[in-house]
């Protein structure tokens, strides 16, 4: 019985010494995200899951629509001529 107790103490001491030499744990970011979800208070949404993927504004890319619609002179030049039609309405509408 005394031998068994000594053997247990030696194993415990060895485990403590060896664990101090263990390398830094590698945490998978995805695992961390899930961990944070688990710790959210009940009723709160997951900010990681809801955060929009950061992207550049769509209009920052080359954009023919914007090239024209941001250019006042080009809009003036390309506007379809409007035939002025005088309304025949009379009185308060």
């Amino acid at each position: 019985m005394r031998k068994l107790r000594w053997l247990s103490l030696i194993i415990l001491a060895l485990w403590l010494v060896l664990s101090g030499c263990q390398g830094e744990a590698v945490i998978n970011p995805a695992d961390e995200a899930y961990a944070s979800v688990d710790t959210l208070p009940q009723g709160e949404s997951n900010p990681i899951a809801l955060a929009p993927t950061p992207t550049a504004p769509a209009l920052a890319e080359p954009n023919e629509c914007l090239n024209c619609h941001a250019d006042q002179q080009r809009l003036v030049d390309t506007a379809r001529p409007e035939e002025a039609v005088e309304s025949e309405s009379s009185g308060v509408g």
Binding site: C65, A70, Q72
Partner: peptide, 21 residues
Amino acid sequence: WEKVLVDVETFPQTVHGYIAC
């Protein structure tokens, strides 16, 4: 032209500016 002129400085920075025309 006034009816369809887009504010190229500000609009792309807004939420709707992230959506392609």
